[in-house]
């Protein structure tokens, strides 16, 4: 009998979590107070910033992440076609402290950073191409699209 109630609870939890995850996937967040910025960025992230391109997408990935590969393909393609946009995939499997310092709890998470390291926005999960471009439009050269 306990098992039956547990099963009902499991089904409710799975339904709610599934809908929550789906709603959260690819959502763009612009943080009012970024966790770390500019000189305070973790070393590997600061090193990944492109000196000339106004926006660098720093994708945080781990080995244990299935959609990270898909995100890498999408963002590499987007950066290749978009002037002023640079993409770096950073594997934090063996350096979780980088994720901690940035307040990142899941992968893939993509941070859009300015060349000085200021956080413009971040995306959890596989980004949606058009929405991401639209959100970055004000930071990229006007020649795009």
């Amino acid at each position: 009998m306990t098992g039956l109630w547990a099963l009902v609870a499991v089904l409710v939890a799975v339904g709610a979590t599934g809908l929550l995850l789906r709603a959260r996937e690819g959502r763009i967040r612009t943080s009012a107070a970024p966790v770390a910025t500019g000189p305070a960025l973790p070393g590997p992230v600061r090193a990944a910033l492109h000196p000339d391109d106004p926006v660098t997408l720093v994708q945080l990935s781990t080995t244990f992440c299935t959609p990270c590969r898909q995100t890498r393909v999408l963002l590499a393609d987007l950066a290749g076609r978009t002037e002023g946009l640079h993409h770096v995939d950073l594997d934090v499997t063996s350096m979780p402290e980088v994720a901690r310092e940035l307040g990142v709890l899941r992968t893939p998470t993509t941070l859009a950073l300015s060349s000085s390291g200021a956080e413009i926005l971040r995306v959890g999960g596989v980004p949606r191409r058009e929405a991401l471009l639209a959100a970055l439009a004000g930071h990229l050269p006007a020649t795009n699209g």
Binding site: F64, V92, P96, A99, R106, T107
Partner: peptide, 14 residues
């Protein structure tokens, strides 16, 4: 198609 490693690996390490 939930990815357990995506959601929990960094949490576990933390």
């Amino acid at each position: 198609a939930f990815c357990l490693g995506c959601e929990t690996y960094l949490l576990l390490r933390r």
